[in-house]
Write a protein that binds this DNA or RNA. Sequence first.
DNA 1: CGGTGATTTGATTTTTCTCAATCCGGGTGG
DNA 2: CCACCCGGATTGAGAAAAATCAAATCACCG
Lengths: 241, 241
Amino acid sequence: MHVALIQVQPTPLEPSAFAQSQAFRGVEPELLLQNLSVKRRRIAAGQPIFSAGDAYAGPHFLHCGVAKSSIASADGRQRVTGFHLRGELLGLESLGTATHACDAIALDDVEVWQLPGGELLAACARNPLLQRALTEQLTRSILSERRWMLSVGTLNAEQRVALLLLDFGDRLCELGFSASHFILRMTRAEIGSFLGLQLETVTRAMSLLAERGLIAVERRDVRILDTDRLRAVTATPARTH
Amino acid sequence: MHVALIQVQPTPLEPSAFAQSQAFRGVEPELLLQNLSVKRRRIAAGQPIFSAGDAYAGPHFLHCGVAKSSIASADGRQRVTGFHLRGELLGLESLGTATHACDAIALDDVEVWQLPGGELLAACARNPLLQRALTEQLTRSILSERRWMLSVGTLNAEQRVALLLLDFGDRLCELGFSASHFILRMTRAEIGSFLGLQLETVTRAMSLLAERGLIAVERRDVRILDTDRLRAVTATPARTH
DNA sequence: CGGTGATTTGATTTTTCTCAATCCGGGTGG
DNA sequence: CCACCCGGATTGAGAAAAATCAAATCACCG
């Protein structure tokens, strides 16, 4: 069963987990863990990791599991702003502020390490490598969001869905899982919210891609059958804006 | 003539201009200017301030004028990611990287102060206040973009245009100009690109808002006639995603 | 074994895009 | 000084994409 590939097992607190992660690649783990009071928390699927308005203590390192982040307006509209795999840093966007501005919700059973924001900033001043890693993480997430902004604004439904699947596969691949076969942890509605589409449109786009033999979908189980042609779909001439 | 209100006059290099700006509010200007080698540049309307792929030297402080930033994909699609007024920091998203990832183009005749990225980061380590200001600027821009993401994904064309006009007015107001009468510095196509709409749709939305007496538009000249009702437009129940 | 939430598919409506024509104002050059 | 030109803006008509409404199916859970 391929499913096992994406089952993330809880692991003991390992200093090297930081350094190996995308977020803190290259940072001496001792420098981090010795000086920072990391708080480990486990959160069940569907439960919030943090919510908008919560007092901000610091960013959350996603040690294992899958999560989504979202933003809501006063009048109840809301939108998913990203899906996160283990090794990512959640809540960075509120660094230095008093309260969380966004929501983060576990899509899996999740373990997060809550880092102390103030100490982290102070540590940055002493450790240029850490500062660099944190800055890079921040710029990386800005750029990622801008690229999605671009895609959502210029690609049609089918292209957006294709891109999401490819992106998800790539990111899983970086973590050592299969890039071409995985289980989606989010609903069609959540995908639609992220891509600026209705859930029915997401379903239809997937059905069309499957009909053309580019992917195989069975509810949450996705297989990318022809990566090249799927990638070609996302590059087809569309609106240029 | 109200038009004069938004004419931005060039001013001499003033340390306090930094401290008064949104970006560096509260930072001792001496600490900044004494230690940083700021390079002033004037850029004519329509010309690039920097382009994707340019070597990254540091962020640009927009000392006067109006600018847009945009991002492009390899296959030529592109999208405006923001409009910027004086006092904002451009190119922060590439801090710590080797090359610019986005484009910034002057919509006005513009003056920018190019800050040295490396020195800036080093100065942050010595000056917590500066670090805090920079972090805040970064989180502010992330949140602003996420809010626009939310709006673009959940509001219809008319609502998006109404929101843009209100936002533009508010930001001008913060700079001491009129919030209800201003000249747009960007084309309908640029507005559309930012809002995820075609230029004709932007025009139509404005015409509709004008028809209902909420605004008065004459090409680039915009007057907000009924702020309350215009704001109500943006809050009308729409798609919830 | 029923119930619930998620997904899929179909039919229809709405919104926005696209294509086309026209208008308008500022700037240029005769 | 004026006619012309050109980019931007506006408006209209028709087409396309996606939203909306509705119904049926499916998997999983208690």
